[in-house]
Amino acid sequence: MIKVITLSITALLSFSSVAASPNDINYYVIAKQAAPFQIENKADQHSGIVTDIVKKVFEGSQYAINYHSYPFNRMISILEGGGQANWITYGSPSWGGVQAKNLSEEPIYTVKHVLLSSKKNEFTFNNMKDIENKIVVLLHGFDYPQLTPFIQSGKVEELRVKDYQAAFRIVKKLQGDAAFVEMDSRIKYNLSELNLDREQYKTQSFNKIIPDYPIYLAFDPNMDKSIQTFINERLKNMKSSGELDQIINNYI
């Protein structure tokens, strides 16, 4: 009996070593919350700015991409626990945590936040005084430390919504009294996806409050150095050839 169990364990270990190929790249996707950076449809097909960049990086190489899709908090928990070997996702130094520990040498995109309001009863934003006593619409799960003091002091009222459709509806309904804070790229993408008329909305830079910042590919801290070198070289070539910009322009 002991021999049978020993053989079974040995067989399992042997199988695991075969399954975990050193050429496997485990790409982690935030489910349903990261468009246009990561997009998945019902057919389990993946696209988006970051996803298309990752696909292009490994195109024609010996590496195979394995996709792992989870809600954001679950994904972070998995990656903090180690994740699958040689994992990759995206991140930024400003985010901290596991998405900031080991980043690509080249940034892949610059994040810009904007203030979206209705064009009816429009207002001009120069500083936070311009939106005092107004409603700031935010998505659930997205927190901005730069806004917290104004919300806590009562200078602006916070309203959380579950999705972009709700945010756009509130901004349109509360003309001049509400504004949506979000990434410019996500606003453009979701207005297009929902077939809404951009001319009904006013977009203003919010970088005086939330400064622009770069995002990068984020790597497993223990990723094989040869793989990291390969990725960084491919990103440099993609940047110089204009391929990075072409991918970004497909979505925004």
Score class of each variant (00 low, 15 high):
residue 211 P to L: 07
residue 98 V to H: 00
residue 101 K to V: 12
residue 10 T to I: 14
residue 101 K to P: 02
residue 136 V to T: 03
residue 135 I to D: 04
residue 182 E to W: 02
residue 185 S to P: 00
residue 211 P to C: 04
residue 119 K to Q: 11
residue 140 H to C: 08
residue 196 L to E: 08
residue 42 K to H: 11
residue 55 K to S: 09
residue 101 K to G: 01
residue 154 G to H: 12
residue 15 F to V: 13
residue 15 F to S: 11
residue 157 E to N: 11
residue 147 L to Q: 06
residue 180 F to I: 09
residue 198 R to Q: 14
residue 178 A to D: 08
residue 40 E to K: 15
residue 158 E to M: 14
residue 66 N to A: 06
residue 195 N to I: 02
residue 48 G to Q: 02
residue 30 I to P: 00
residue 247 I to V: 05
residue 169 R to K: 15
residue 209 I to Q: 08
residue 248 I to E: 04
residue 171 V to D: 03
residue 120 K to H: 10
residue 175 Q to I: 07
residue 40 E to Q: 15
residue 164 Y to E: 02
residue 245 D to I: 14
residue 3 K to P: 15
residue 122 E to D: 10
residue 109 Y to D: 11
residue 232 N to L: 05
residue 16 S to M: 09
residue 147 L to G: 03
residue 110 T to A: 08
residue 39 I to V: 13
residue 238 M to S: 04
residue 107 P to C: 05
residue 76 I to K: 06
residue 200 Q to G: 14
residue 164 Y to W: 10
residue 153 S to L: 15
residue 244 L to H: 05
residue 193 E to K: 13
residue 56 K to D: 13
residue 79 L to H: 02
residue 125 F to M: 06
residue 209 I to V: 11
residue 191 L to D: 03
residue 144 Y to A: 01
residue 182 E to I: 03
residue 152 Q to P: 04
residue 219 F to H: 07
residue 22 P to R: 03
residue 24 D to Y: 04
residue 179 A to L: 11
residue 149 P to S: 01
residue 148 T to M: 08
residue 116 L to F: 09
residue 157 E to R: 12
residue 148 T to S: 11
residue 125 F to G: 03
residue 236 K to S: 15
residue 21 S to E: 07
residue 28 Y to V: 02
residue 33 Q to N: 13
residue 114 V to S: 09
residue 190 N to V: 06
residue 192 S to N: 12
residue 152 Q to I: 01
residue 237 N to Q: 14
residue 78 I to T: 13
residue 114 V to G: 07
residue 109 Y to E: 10
residue 227 I to F: 12
residue 151 I to S: 03
residue 173 K to N: 15
residue 136 V to N: 01
residue 34 A to S: 12
residue 149 P to K: 01
residue 124 T to D: 09
residue 232 N to Q: 11
residue 47 S to P: 09
residue 180 F to R: 04
residue 142 F to V: 12
residue 104 S to F: 06
residue 124 T to S: 05
residue 188 K to M: 10
residue 214 P to N: 09
residue 208 K to Q: 13
residue 167 A to H: 00
residue 106 E to V: 13
residue 32 K to L: 07
residue 171 V to Q: 06
residue 243 E to H: 08
residue 107 P to T: 08
residue 204 Q to L: 08
residue 208 K to R: 11
residue 142 F to C: 04
residue 241 S to Q: 05
residue 203 T to R: 12
residue 157 E to I: 13
residue 219 F to C: 05
residue 182 E to R: 04
residue 51 T to D: 07
residue 56 K to L: 10
residue 16 S to K: 08
residue 10 T to H: 08
residue 175 Q to P: 10
residue 92 S to L: 05
residue 197 D to A: 07
residue 210 I to V: 12
residue 169 R to A: 15
residue 150 F to E: 11
residue 203 T to S: 14
residue 161 V to G: 04
residue 170 I to C: 04
residue 157 E to G: 04
residue 79 L to D: 02
residue 8 S to G: 03
residue 34 A to V: 00
residue 214 P to R: 03
residue 129 K to D: 12
residue 243 E to F: 04
residue 154 G to K: 08
residue 245 D to S: 14
residue 89 T to Q: 06
residue 109 Y to N: 07
residue 44 D to M: 15
residue 188 K to F: 10
residue 153 S to Y: 00
residue 102 N to F: 12
residue 71 P to G: 05
residue 176 G to V: 09
residue 82 G to I: 05
residue 126 N to G: 06
residue 206 F to G: 02
residue 230 F to V: 03
residue 216 Y to E: 00
residue 16 S to N: 09
residue 137 V to F: 01
residue 198 R to W: 02
residue 131 I to S: 02
residue 118 S to Y: 05
